[in-house]
Design a protein around this nucleic acid. Structure first.
Length: 573
RNA sequence: GUCGCAAUAGCUCAGCUGGAUAGAGCAACGGUCUUCUAAACCGUAGGUCGAGGGUUCGAAUCUCUCUUGCGACACCA
C-alpha cells in the first residue's frame, strides 16, 4: 500500500517537511526514506508532523539526540511556524494562518466534492453484495453485506471508480427443491400470499425437522431442483412466485436503509450460462471425475478440489459464481471485481479465484474477496433452520422507535420528527455496523446496537446538526475563508482534521474499509464538539467570518463522510 | 486432525510503515445548561497489550512455539 495513504497526514505539508529535511541531510537519506519516517505526533503539543532521527543514528554513528540538534541548525524553516527539537525528534509546527486559510478555502470551494480524486479513472467495479436468500427473512448478516457494500460503492465513486452494485440474490439452488417439496406437502396458497416469507420459512424449517426421520424427503427435494434447472413449468412457476413475493419484502428494508442496486442478477440469472462454464472447463481439460462428481483439481494451489457438478449433474454455488465472473468479465471489463461476503467463506473464495485463474479469465486477478465478520447470538452462528435469527426489520424498527422517544424528550418542537427519528434510528444501526473494522466478528446484543451516545452515528449527526444550527442563525453573515486567523487554539485540531479528509478517502478505498471513514467522522465530530464547547462561535468580532467558514467546512465534511457511509445527516435533531 | 482468523481497561473497540508517557467510547464516580441544541463538554478511576522465546538501539506492532476462542475443510450457500 502507498505509504502516504497509510498515515492520513497532510500531504502538502508532508512534502514540505520532506523537502526541508532532504536539503538539510544532504543526501544521507533519500527523499523517500525520509518521507517514510515522518509521522504524526500523538499530541498536538508535539507539533503537526515529526521526524524521528533513530534511523540516522546508524548511518552517522551518533546519538539520535545529537543528530536532531545538528539537523535542526541546518534546516530551512520557512513556511513553518517553528521546528522544535525534543530528544531524538524534530517536531514541525505548521504556519497556522496559512494552513487554515488554505484548508478552509479548499473545502468551501469544492463543497461536497472535497476529498474527491480520479484514481479509479472510471474503471468498472462490480460489487457482489447484500445477496439475501429468497424465502428467508433478511437478518443482520445481510445488513452487513448491504451496508458495507453500499458504503464501499460510495467510497469507490469518490475515488473515481464506477461501481456496479449487484444484488446477487440467492434465488437458486437445492434449497428451492426443499422449499417446493415442503410447499407441496404442507403449504397452501392463501397463507403464502398473506405472509410470504414467514410462511415459506415455516415450511423450510419443517422440512429440515422432518427430513431427519424421512431422508427420502431429500431425494425428493433434489429431484425438484433438478426439474427446476431443467425448466419444468410447475417448478418454475412456484419458484417465480416465491422469488417475487420475497423481493417485495426485501425492497421495504432497502428503502429503509436508502440502498439501491444497479442489478439484481441473482444466481438464477446465470442458470442458462452454466453449460458454457462446463464446456470451457472441459475444453481446458480442467474437469475430472471424482466419486461420480465433476471437479477441478487445485492441488497446485494447495487447495481442495472445487466441486463443479454434483453426481446427479446439478450445478453448485461455484458453478454459478464462475458464470458470474465470466459475465462480469465480458460485460464490465472490471478494474476490480468485489465480493462482500462473510468471512466464513474465505476458503471458498480462494478456490473460486484459483479456478478462474486456471481458466485464464482476464479479470481473475481482479477478484477481490471483501470479507466481514460473522454475526452470532450468544456466541453461536445464526441459522434460519434452527430459528436462531435476528430480523433486520425488527432491529431497525426498535432503533427508530427509540430515536423518536429521544426526540420527544430532547427536542419536542422539532417539525419533522418522524423523518428525523428514522434518519437517526437507522443511522445508528448502519454507523454502528460500519464503525469497526469490517472483519471483526459481532456477537449481537440488541442493547449494544441501540446506543445514541458516545462514538455513535447520532453523535456525528448531532455535531453536524449543531453546525447547521449555527449557520442558520448566522445566515446574514458573509462567510469568508480567508483574511483572519482563528486565534482559538481549539479550532486548530478541527482544521487539521478537515485537511486529513482527502487522504482518508484514499485510504478507505485502498483498504475497502468504511470504518476508516467512520473513525474520521468521529474524530472530526469530537474536535468540533470540543471547539464548540470551548468558544462562542457567534460572537461579534473580527474573526466571526473565519469561524463561520470553519463551521461551514465542518458541516460539509461531516455530511459528506456520513453520505459515504450511507447515513443521512439531518440539519436539525 | 489440517488450514484460516482472532486475543489490548469491567464491557465494546482504536493503536497507521516497529518509535516520544498504550488511547477512545460505554459502564462507575464527580463537575458544567439565564449565553450558538447537555444526543454535548470537562475531570477522577481503571491495562505486566493471552503466555513464553527470538530479531532490534527500540516490539501491542515483525517472527517462532504454546494456550484459548471462532470459522472453514467437496455433492449447502
Amino acid at each position: 500500500m502507498d505509504n502516504c495513504l497509510g498515515r492520513k497526514i497532510r500531504m502538502d505539508y508532508k512534502q514540505k517537511v520532506t523537502a526541508a529535511l532532504t536539503a538539510a541531510l544532504d543526501g544521507q537519506l533519500t527523499a523517500d526514506e525520509i518521507s517514510n519516517k515522518i509521522e504524526r505526533p500523538k499530541t498536538s503539543d508535539k507539533g503537526d508532523l515529526a521526524f524521528p532521527t533513530f534511523t540516522l543514528a546508524k548511518v552517522l554513528h551518533q546519538a539520535p539526540q545529537q543528530i536532531a540538534k545538528d539537523v535542526a541548525t541546518k534546516l530551512d524553516t520557512t513556511g513553518f511556524e517553528k521546528v522544535e527539537v525534543v530528544g531524538p525528534y524534530l517536531n514541525f509546527f505548521f504556519d497556522k494562518n496559512t494552513f487554515s486559510e488554505e484548508t478552509l478555502k479548499t473545502v468551501l470551494t469544492e463543497g461536497a466534492d472535497y476529498g474527491k480524486n480520479e484514481e479509479g479513472a472510471g474503471g468498472n467495479v462490480p460489487i457482489d453484495m447484500s445477496s439475501p436468500n429468497i424465502a428467508k427473512p433478511m437478518s443482520m448478516g445481510h445488513l452487513r453485506s448491504t451496508v458495507i457494500g453500499n458504503s464501499i460503492a460510495e467510497i469507490l465513486t469518490k475515488n473515481g471508480y464506477h461501481p456496479i452494485k449487484d444484488n446477487h440474490l440467492g434465488d437458486w439452488g437445492t434449497q428451492f427443491g426443499k422449499l417446493i417439496t415442503a410447499y407441496k406437502l404442507w403449504g397452501n396458497e392463501a397463507d403464502v400470499k398473506r405472509d410470504p416469507i414467514n410462511k415459506l420459512v415455516e415450511y423450510y424449517v419443517r422440512f429440515h425437522k422432518e427430513d431427519v426421520e424421512h431422508p427420502e424427503l431429500d431425494d425428493e427435494a433434489r429431484e425438484w431442483f433438478r426439474k427446476l434447472e431443467a425448466g419444468d413449468p410447475e417448478a418454475h412457476k412456484l419458484w417465480a412466485w416465491f422469488r417475487e413475493a420475497s423481493l417485495q419484502e426485501f425492497s421495504q428494508v432497502y428503502e429503509e436503509l436508502g440502498v439501491t442496486f444497479d442489478t439484481f442478477n441473482g444466481e438464477a440469472f446465470y442458470n442458462d450460462k452454466l453449460e458454457e462454464v462446463v464446456q470451457i472447463l472441459k475444453d481446458k481439460n480442467l474437469l475430472v471425475e471424482s466419486q461420480g462428481a465433476q471437479v477441478v483439481d487445485l492441488s497446485k494451489y494447495d487447495l481442495n478440489p472445487a466441486l463443479i457438478l454434483k453426481s446427479d449433474g446439478a450445478s453448485l454455488y461455484i458453478t454459478r459464481d464462475i458464470a458470474t465472473a465470466l459475465y462480469r468479465d465480458r460485460t464490465y471489463a472490471p478494474a476490480k471485481n468485489l465480493y462482500v461476503v462473510g468471512s466464513e467463506q474465505a476458503y471458498y473464495f480462494k478456490q473460486l479465484k484459483a479456478v478462474l485463474t486456471e481458466i485464464g479469465l482476464p479479470s481473475a486477478s481482479k477478484l477481490q474477496y471483501v470479507p466481514f465478520g460473522l454475526i452470532t447470538v450468544d456466541g453461536k452462528k445464526l441459522s434460519t433452520r434452527s430459528g436462531r435469527i435476528i430480523l433486520l426489520a425488527k432491529v431497525l424498527e426498535e432503533s427508530v422507535k427509540l430515536a423518536g422517544e429521544e426526540i420527544n424528550e430532547k427536542n419536542p418542537d422539532l417539525p419533522n420528527k418522524e423523518e428525523v427519528a428514522h434518519q437517526v434510528g437507522v443511522g445508528a444501526i448502519v454507523f454502528g455496523d460500519l464503525k469497526n473494522e469490517r472483519t471483526n466478528a459481532i456477537d449481537f446484543v440488541l442493547a449494544d446496537q441501540l446506543k445514541f451516545e458516545g462514538e455513535t452515528g447520532p453523535y456525528v449527526q448531532y455535531a453536524h446538526a449543531r453546525a447547521e444550527s449555527i449557520l442558520r442563525k448566522a445566515a446574514s453573515v458573509d462567510v469568508k475563508a480567508g483574511g483572519n486567523e482563528i486565534s482559538d487554539p481549539e479550532a486548530w485540531d478541527t482544521i487539521k482534521t478537515l485537511a486529513d479528509f482527502p487522504a482518508t478517502v484514499k485510504m478507505a478505498c485502498a483498504e475497502l474499509e468504511p470504518s476508516v471513514i467512520a473513525k474520521f467522522a468521529i474524530r472530526l465530530s469530537k474536535t468540533f464538539n470540543k471547539y464548540y464547547a470551548h468558544s462562542k462561535i457567534l460572537a461579534e468580532d473580527a474573526e466571526l467570518s473565519a469561524r463561520l467558514a470553519l463551521v461551514k467546512a465542518v458541516s460539509t465534511v461531516l455530511k459528506e463522510s456520513l453520505r459515504l457511509l450511507g447515513v443521512q445527516a439531518p440539519d436539525e435533531m
